[in-house]
Amino acid sequence: IVGGEFTVVENQPWFAAIYMKNKGGGPLSFKCGGSLISACWVASATHCFINIPNKEDYVVYLGQSKRNSYNPGEMKFEVEQLILHEDYREDTLAYHNDIALLKIRTSTGQCAQPSRSIQTICLPPRFVDAPVGSDCEITGFGQESHTDYLYPKNLKMSVVKLISHQECKQPHYYGSEINYKMLCAADPEWKTDSCMGDSGGPLICNINDRPTLSGIVSWGRGCAEKNKPGVYTRVSFFLSWIHSHIGEENGLAF
């Protein structure tokens, strides 16, 4: 996250930290963010996993304010299922259908338990998004600037505004790289944005007065670059896909 502020996971209790195991047994490598959408399921981005699509290579933590550290109240999970979108595609800049589902379970076969630092995030109503100009929250352990090469130790969050497709499709923004299954969001002063390492994490907008997972951090040109908004997978357009994989499992809050 470029700009914004450091926070604690109690402020974003649905945030999931997804790590890659190290073959040599060394420390885990932070990979991407995710969002807890029901007790057993985390939503993230397919581009995070497409090159190494083996569920055994990943570990998911909930309740973490500090990366690669023990956080009181955290929960650690193996990935029981790793579901990548079958129509995922990479363009020059854009990622299409950039959504993934991870079924999580502890070493004793449990799913997530609610606590001060662990909570699910609501899914949007079908094809319903917050209005253009709405303030939405982003969260992650991603880089604090485009030129950084280290991730911050502490969780960050910031606020960006939803941008219309019309504005985002302008030639000096992203032109035809943008389609209706994506959402664009940015800071009017181009001072804060999601960045590398925030991929898969949440864009939380209020819909009907409820914090809702409206977007999944997907792609963008640089970070906090003028006329280059962050681009997010538009979750309200993927509810059938989510449903088809999670089923009518209770606890999915639509």
């Binding site: 604690v8 109690e10 402020n11 209790p13 649905w14 029901s38 007790a39 799913c111 997530a112 338990q113 609610p114 001060r116 630092s117 909570q119 699910t120 995030i121 609501c122 899914l123 409820r210 914090p211 809702t212 209770n250 606890g251 809050a253």
Partner: peptide, 22 residues
């Protein structure tokens, strides 16, 4: 009857603890 957004595992989507621990 629990409000609709509370599921049987006690999750209340989108709800945050009243205030952060510190």
């Amino acid at each position: 009857k629990k409000p609709s957004s509370v599921d049987q595992r006690g999750f209340q989507c989108g709800q945050k603890a009243l205030r952060p621990r510190f």
